[in-house]
Structure formats: structure tokens, C-alpha cells
Design a protein around this nucleic acid. Structure first.
Lengths: 218, 218
DNA sequence: TTTGGTTCTTGATGCGCGTCAAAGCTCGCG
DNA sequence: CGCGAGCTTTGACGCGCATCAAGAACCAAA
């Protein structure tokens, strides 16, 4: 199936049997926070598998497409019809769920221990490595989330986020083209803004990338 | 196996094949945050299953017992020797992982959208429902985490946490006996301090409990 | 019970980030 | 091509929470 940008997948907990696998595009898990403000709780990248049984019964939870997406939709119970493939699929889901969980835990660590500036830097780093084109020490990527989306994900306010982006840009670490495209001038330099960058690198397929200074300056 | 209070389970990512199932006691997933400060990323209650593949490769990650614990330790690969039970066990692990993930997402929502006072109230509510004795509208529970542990979990400073506890006590919502025991005078009143309390109730087995005012005042 | 060390509380102070308001940019749509 | 709505940026200001420091309470051992 396909989903359009801004489209909300019907995912009440009543359909917890349904599993979505992301083939292309970016989606987010969204909910209404305590103060009525929307918050983005997790980001789904190509390769991720998601089912509503993974989300808590928050007010207004659901998965929303941030870009046009290709998805696979299937029912877990349908697996039982294919005993020979089930084993393999169970293992796949298990592994995907574990990775998603690790990313969520990392997100907790970032929210809890990083300054807002480092959080933004970590977000751009993650997005660039996941969805961007990496060339040597630079990277270019689309920003599938608007500024206020990013703010809602990083638990910042849009005003503050804007200020931080301005600071990063004026420092020459990142640049933007229009509103929805970012250029990372130097990945290493960006990493220096993110204390726990090594974990981010590892979780997004760049375990071998040497982030040099890392957090050794602390 | 058993674990003593403060004992750290050997859980480097090299042993990601090992699964721990909590029979009794409380454990936490701990790591060193960016600023060198320790942080507690998740709490494990009886019934939970945890494997290191669920944790990101943060500096100093590991599971630490907060109380004396009874645990089951097993290797996932050992499951394959028992094909008849494997099906069932896979399903069990899947379900436990999903619940754990839902709790982590809820924790993100709390960290991101709740004031520090509400976070503390939510924490006490969760602990009381999970590990305490509930009698009518009141509950009593041990506090397996010290004040600074709680602060590290809620992304607060120990000083601030202390102030908040004092405020909650002076308001008569909770009381303490010694340092490691809490009494919730009125669960409903406590719920009113927590905007997203309904989700907390649902995730800890009290879905039917009516938290009245809930967040309808918003 | 006394003693000592750890943990917890409480006060004073400062900074970061949220909030509000206004202006500036983008981009879609006519 | 130009207009308008919705984003985004920027400034001024206040509050909440972190920080530092000192004192109190608690607990475990002697």
C-alpha cells in the first residue's frame, strides 16, 4: 500500500494485530501530550516494522506519514498460514522491534541528558545518516519534518528550535536549502556537538565511522 | 538465579543472546549520560523479560538490581532445542517486549510533556500500582529507588525532586515512612496531578479504574 | 546509645528555555 | 505573476529548574 504525506494510518489499539513494514518514506508515531500539545514519540525509517501493540494507549496515538511512503500491511495472525516462513518472519520482527526499542531508549537518553542544542545536532546527524547522501565527511538530506514537527519530537518549542538552527548555521556546521533540505558541512564537526554520537552512529549503520573527539573532552 | 540489591548484571552487547526474566524485585536499565551523569532509562518489574539486544550501545549500559531479585536467565538460542515450547515462548517474549516498548514510549511522553511535578506524581502512581498494596483508594509501596535514582530516572535534579516531594507531602497527596516507603493517601487525587494518568493506569493493569477528572480539565 | 557517613532537605541565586508578539519568508493557488 | 496563508525567524521578558552550599535526618555499625 501507499500513504500520502500527512496521511494518518488507522491504528487504534483495536487493530493491534496489524503490522506495517516501511519500504520507503518516513513516518512518525504521534500523540497528544498532557498539555494538549501534539508530540512525536518515535520516527520510523525504511526497514522498520510497527504494530499498534508497541504503542501505549495515549490520547490520539497514531502513525502519520511525513513523506509519501510505500508500506507493507499484514496481519500477524495471517502468519500462521505459512508455517515454513513463519520462523523467519518472527525472527525478522523480533529483530526489528529490538532495534526500534533501542532507538527509543536512546531517544530517552538524549531527551534526558542533552542540552537542546545537542539534541538538535543529534537529530540532524541521525537523519543525515539514515536518509541522506553521505559523501566523505559531508551529507545532504531532506528534512521530512517541519520545524515545529522537529520541535515536538525533541521536546522543544519551535521558537527555540529556530534559534538553535540559526546558531548551527552561523557556526557553519549545517546549512539549509529552502526549508526542507539540510546540508551537513562536516559530519565530524557535527559529531562534536553530540556527546553520545557514537551510539547514534552505531544504531544507524555507521559503527565504523570514527567520530574522533567523541565525548572524550568531558 | 538471584541478584542482590545494587548488583550489576553482566550485560555487554556481546551477550545479547541472553534473556533475563524477572520473577521478583525491581531492576533498572542504567547508563552514563552525555554529561557524565548516570541516568536510569527504564524500570523492569516482575514479569518483564529483557535482553541486551533491546538496549542501545551507550556508555556504561547495564541492568542493575534495585532490590534483591529472583531472575530466570536463559539463552535465546537454547530455545531451538525445544521446538514444541518454542512457539509459546516466542509469543511470550514478543508480548513482553511490546509491553516494555509501550512503557518506554509512555516514558518519553512523560519526559517531554509533563511538568516535573507531574512526572514525580506519575512515577509514584506507577510504582504504587505495580508494586504496592492497593486498598480502596489508597496504596502503600516500597520505594526501591533512592531519591537521586528517581531524579536520574525522571531527568530531574535530586534537589528539585526533594522539593517536589515536600510539596506533594504538604498537600497530603502522599506521605512517607522512613525514606523508602510511600503511602498514597488517595489514588484519585494523585491521578489528578497526572494529565496522562489513564494511560499509566492502563499499562499497569488498572484500565478499569476510573480516574475521574483525568485530563478533562484541559 | 553514640558515632560517623551517607542521603536528604532547604535556601539563595543564575541561566536556559518557554511564552508572547510582531515581522519576514516560502510556497501554493488563483 | 502576484497575492495570501501558514510557516519560520527574531526580540523582550518571565518562570522553572539546575547549581552550589550548608545544615538536618537517617541508617548502620561499634
Amino acid at each position: 500500500m501507499r500513504a500520502r504525506r500527512r496521511q494518518r494510518l488507522v491504528m487504534s489499539s483495536k487493530w493491534s494485530d496489524i503490522i506495517y513494514v516501511v519500504k520507503s518514506g518516513v513516518l512518525v508515531l504521534s500523540a497528544n501530550g498532557g498539555s494538549g500539545r501534539r508530540q512525536l514519540l518515535a520516527i520510523l525509517y525504511p526497514g522498520d516494522a510497527y504494530s499498534m501493540s508497541l504503542a501505549p494507549p495515549l490520547d490520539g496515538v497514531g502513525v502519520v506519514a511525513m513523506t509519501d511512503c510505500d508500506l507493507i500491511r499484514m496481519r500477524r495472525s495471517a502468519l500462521e498460514d505459512f508455517p515454513s516462513e513463519m520462523q523467519e518472519l518472527e525472527a525478522f520482527l523480533q529483530q526489528r522491534t529490538a532495534e526500534l526499542h533501542a532507538r527509543s531508549i536512546l531517544h530517552i537518553a538524549r531527551l534526558a541528558s542533552l542540552s537542546s542544542e545537542s539534541r538538535v545536532a543529534a537529530f540532524i546527524l541521525e537523519l543525515a545518516l539514515r536518509t541522506g547522501q553521505v559523501v566523505n565527511d559531508t551529507a545532504t538530506c531532506d528534512l521530512p519534518l517541519s520545524r515545529s514537527d522537529i520541535a515536538d519530537y525533541l521536546s522543544l518549542n519551535a521558537d527555540t528550535l529556530s534559534r538553535i538552527m540559526t546558531r548551527l548555521k552561523s557556526r557553519g556546521t549545517v546549512a539549509t536549502v529552502g526549508r526542507s533540505r539540510a546540508i551537513v558541512k562536516s559530519i565530524k564537526r557535527l559529531c562534536k556537538e553530540v556527546p553520545i554520537c557514537r551510539t547514534t552512529l552505531a544504531l544507524h549503520g555507521y559503527a565504523e565511522l570514527d567520530c574522533q573527539a567523541d565525548n572524550s573532552h568531558s
